[in-house]
């Protein structure tokens, strides 16, 4: 019996912490759709669920780690990527997914993002972009388009925003895509494809935020924002990331922009370890030895 008092269950409930449901996301928010797409693509990709780790930071999107019934960690503000980096290096078998918002990954955690992309650490980053700091009341963020009104820019934003695919691609990500929360099928396919790839994979998902962003920008409901995405999205696969800026009330270029191969951080680390210690000390043995040392240390 779930919290709603009924015996009925949804098929995705097996991957959700039902005691946490219903979630805190507002009516009209796109985060639930994106989380559903993510869980659905995890099922479709056939990855062992025991090896998946979801890491998120602070913010509305950061709540996702608390809602999924997988190994997950809700880190401090902006530090989702460093935590995920540590996880991946310590246990390379894990499939690490960072699921967080623009305020967390791009504003306070921007430095971690560019360095993780530069090192090409093997992880999937799903960055939900709602153009403002939603949880704290809709302040101006680094992704707010020029001219947009927010709580702290009541007469319009005059700061130039980041173009997230451009930032990720320039930093060295091997897979860069952008969708909106309206493109659920394509988003599902893209996440599935990204999960099965190696390297730093960055997916920007544009989501409506009617409560704090939309109502100040003449899109008072989530449905208005979704309709805007439907009418103004242009699918252009392989577009140059430097041409995909988002303007207020302008066209949104979506699609898969970058899909290349590059040696990952773990590959290069392995190579250096091989060169330094030779083939007699393969990586697995070292990790076991270290594990025993660490385990016996407190005695």
């Amino acid at each position: 019996m779930n919290q709603n008092g009924s015996e009925q269950k949804h098929y995705i409930d097996q991957y959700l912490r039902e005691d946490r449901m219903p979630h805190i996301w507002c009516p009209g928010c796109g985060l639930g759709s994106i989380l559903h797409c993510f869980l659905s693509s995890l099922i479709k990709s056939g990855i062992d669920m025991d090896k998946v780790v979801v890491v998120s930071g602070i913010g509305c999107t950061g709540r996702a780690a608390g809602y999924v019934k997988l190994d997950s960690f809700h880190t401090t503000h902006g530090r989702a990527i460093p935590f995920a980096t540590g996880l991946k290096i310590a246990n390379p078998e894990l499939q690490v997914v960072v699921f967080s918002g623009d305020g967390d990954l791009i504003a306070i955690g921007g430095n971690h993002l560019i360095h993780a992309a530069r090192r090409n650490i093997d992880m999937t980053v799903i960055c939900v972009n709602n153009f403002n700091y939603g949880m704290t009341g809709g302040q101006l963020g680094p992704t707010t388009p020029l001219g947009a009104r927010t709580q702290t820019s009541p007469i319009g934003n005059y700061e130039r925003p980041f173009s997230l695919p451009y930032l990720a691609a320039a930093s060295g990500a091997v897979y860069v895509a952008r969708w909106t929360s309206m493109h659920v099928r394509r988003l599902e396919q893209t996440i599935t494809e990204a999960l099965l790839k190696r390297g730093f994979r960055f997916i920007e998902v544009i989501a409506p935020c009617p409560t704090t962003y939309g109502r100040r920008n003449r899109q008072p409901t989530g449905l208005d924002q979704m309709r805007y995405y439907r009418e103004n999205s242009i699918i252009r696969h392989g577009a140059d990331p430097k041409d995909v800026d988002i303007d207020l009330n302008g066209k949104i270029i979506v699609g898969k922009f970058i899909d290349i191969e590059r040696p990952t951080y773990s590959d290069l680390l392995d190579e250096v370890m091989q060169r330094a210690f030779g083939t007699e000390l393969p990586k697995d043995d070292t990790s076991k030895e270290e594990a025993t040392v660490v385990g016996s240390a407190p005695k």
Binding site: S6, Q8, M21, G28, C29, T221, L223, M226
Partner: peptide, 17 residues
Amino acid sequence: VEVLKDRCKQCRFCIDF
């Protein structure tokens, strides 16, 4: 279509799309 009625928050996404 099966709807868990008590979960619906009336965002109308499904109706529109």
